[in-house]
Design a protein around this nucleic acid. Structure first.
Length: 546
DNA sequence: GAATGCGGGTCAC
DNA sequence: GTGACCCGCATTC
């Protein structure tokens, strides 16, 4: 036991950071499998990410030492915000009534692991399901699916053809080896009025898709107008992020799944109500350099408690958090599907630090333009605000910006299948999407690495009125397009982006027969015919057609 | 059907 | 003893 004798108080940010440095140091002290004579991780057929820096460990605002295995854990009166994407060696204490905590939720695909301790629930990370061909979607995103928790279901997943029909790759699990060669483990323990969470290890893989997307796909399974994987992931991430920003104000009563499906249309009518305070905790972006200011610990803090500092308390932090983790930037070896809505935004990675100030100015200008264009009261303006009020360091510029950004998260976790996941639509109607739709805007604004997002919609898709899922996607589309326009204005040369711009008329089309629920991603033969190239392929000069 | 929690059991160190 | 992992069962959604 290492319980401090002094009363629990909320320490200064500096102390928090110091603690995180210690935590990170502790994590680095982890013995390697070699040193322990443990079997090395299984050789992976999947392309391994290049050595990646250790992501920041999640922070706890509770400065007290404890361990999940302590006989008696400290009693606290203040709790951490729930963090779906807890990473690194960290300990968090959640309120006992926290629904997510009660469900032992996580954005990571965690499966139960028997530790023969009835008091402590142990879970280990399953990694992420990737395409072994390392294919890229037209938007540059990689395939990063969520491994099924159920062993049987997971076995079925593996070896399946990549959802990208033009890719011959197979889905393979990239196991998590973030804890000394073993999967990252999470420990949950209930004691008193608190739920204690401890994570060991730092995930060495991309985030899987949000849990909710699996549900979404199920919903879509019977829908002949299922979108592409890219869109699914994008929209999922969009919803994910949005839910993140709303988490604190939501949590309605649970709704049976069937009822949710039936109510989806009704949900669309709900107006987007921004959260006064968003208590969802993203992955704390502490840095080992201890140079960070209080990322996410916005001055505004929380109105509910002087101790509680919502990490996402302001819209401004939206993208900072999103951009900061670096998953999308390839820092961790993967360019995850990004959208401003995405939990894995890589959009910001197209910019570098030296340009950030200029970008901000441009963004502000763009923001003003957007404000003029966007309808009010439909929620879209909310998103716009979150998008364009990015601080100079908001767009991720590399690992050194961890401290100013946070991870996002999601709907995933607990709420993946919860009604709340589908209950927080903006409620804006398709018409609003037209503002960002391809019909009115210059093509130059659309053909970005993510342009396919705007091409996937069946022209007849709304003929029968938008479904819940459709609007879900539309929402992602509109939001993403907004940011794409900003990106285009940046005029920053990124090879990948340049490649896209070389074919300003190129377009991608998706088709789905509805039979096997497999999606085609095709380039319009009438326009550009150059193969799509990923940044990597551009470097190597090898075109990638998937 | 899948997620989740639980627990028995095995294996390696 | 510890940790990882497999498996089956039951419950819930």
């Amino acid at each position: 036991m290492r319980i401090e004798q002094k009363p629990l108080t909320f320490q200064t940010v500096n102390l928090i950071e110091q603690n995180m440095v210690l935590n990170n140091m502790a994590s680095t002290m982890c013995l390697t499998p070699q040193s322990q004579n443990l079997p090395l991780p299984l050789p992976m057929s999947l392309p391994q990410p290049s050595p990646v820096p250790s992501p920041p460990a999640s922070k706890s605002r509770i400065q007290i030492e404890w361990d999940i295995n302590d006989t008696i854990v400290p009693t606290v009166s203040e709790f951490d915000d729930f963090n779906d994407w807890a990473n690194g060696h960290c300990r968090l204490i959640y309120a006992g009534h926290n629904e997510d905590a009660k469900k032992h939720a996580s954005g990571w695909a965690m499966r139960n692991t028997n530790n023969h301790n009835v008091n402590i629930l142990k879970k280990s990370c399953l990694g992420v399901l990737l395409c072994n061909a390392n294919c890229r979607l037209p938007n540059g995103a990689s395939v990063h699916l969520r491994p099924a928790i159920c062993d049987k279901a997971r076995r079925k997943q593996q070896g399946k053809q990549c959802p990208n029909r033009n890719c011959n790759g197979r889905l393979e699990i990239q196991p998590c080896r973030g804890h000394c060669g073993y999967p990252v483990t999470h420990f949950w323990r209930r004691a008193g009025n608190a739920i204690y969470f401890q994570a060991k290890g730092t995930h060495d893989h991309a985030r899987p898709e949000a849990k909710g997307s699996t549900e979404a796909r199920r919903l879509l399974a019977g829908n002949r107008r299922v979108r592409s994987l890219a869109v699914i992931l994008a929209s999922d991430a969009a919803l994910n992020d949005k839910l993140c920003s709303l988490r604190s104000s939501k949590r309605p009563m649970k709704t049976p799944r069937k009822q949710r499906a039936n109510n989806n249309t009704e949900l669309l009518q709900q107006n987007y109500q921004p959260a006064a305070t968003t208590a969802t905790a993203g992955v704390a972006a502490a840095t080992t350099t201890n140079t960070s200011t209080s990322f996410n610990q916005t001055p505004s803090s929380s109105s509910s408690s002087s101790f509680v500092t919502p990490q996402w308390s302001t819209a401004d932090g939206y993208y900072q958090q999103d951009a900061g983790l670096g998953y999308g930037s390839g820092i961790y070896g993967y360019d995850m599907l990004h959208s401003p809505l995405s939990t894995n935004s890589s959009t910001a990675s197209y910019y570098n630090a030296a340009e950030s100030q200029q970008q901000q100015q441009q963004q502000q200008q763009q923001h003003q333009q957007q404000q003029l264009l966007l309808p009010q009261g439909n929620g879209y303006d909310q998103l716009t605000t979150t998008t364009t009020t990015t601080t100079p360091v908001g767009y991720q510029t590399g690992m050194n910006l961890y401290e100013s950004c946070d991870d996002t998260s999601s709907l995933t976790s607990s709420s993946g299948y919860s009604s709340e996941d589908y209950s927080y639509f903006n409620g804006y109607v398709p018409q609003s999407l037209d503002l960002s739709g391809s019909s009115n805007a210059s093509p130059d604004n659309f053909y970005t690495p993510h342009s396919e997002i705007f091409s996937v919609f069946d022209p007849n898709i709304n003929s029968g009125g938008p479904s819940t899922v459709e609007l879900l996607y539309d929402e992602a589309t509109a939001y993403q397009q907004q940011t794409l326009q900003q990106q285009q204005q940046q005029q920053q040369s990124f090879s990948y982006q340049q490649q896209q711009q070389q074919h300003p008329t190129a377009d991608y089309y998706y088709s789905n027969t509805g039979v096997d629920n497999v999606w085609n991603i095709q380039m319009d033969a009438s326009v550009a015919t150059a193969p799509y190239q990923t940044p990597a392929s551009l470097e190597s000069g090898i075109g990638v057609f998937c």
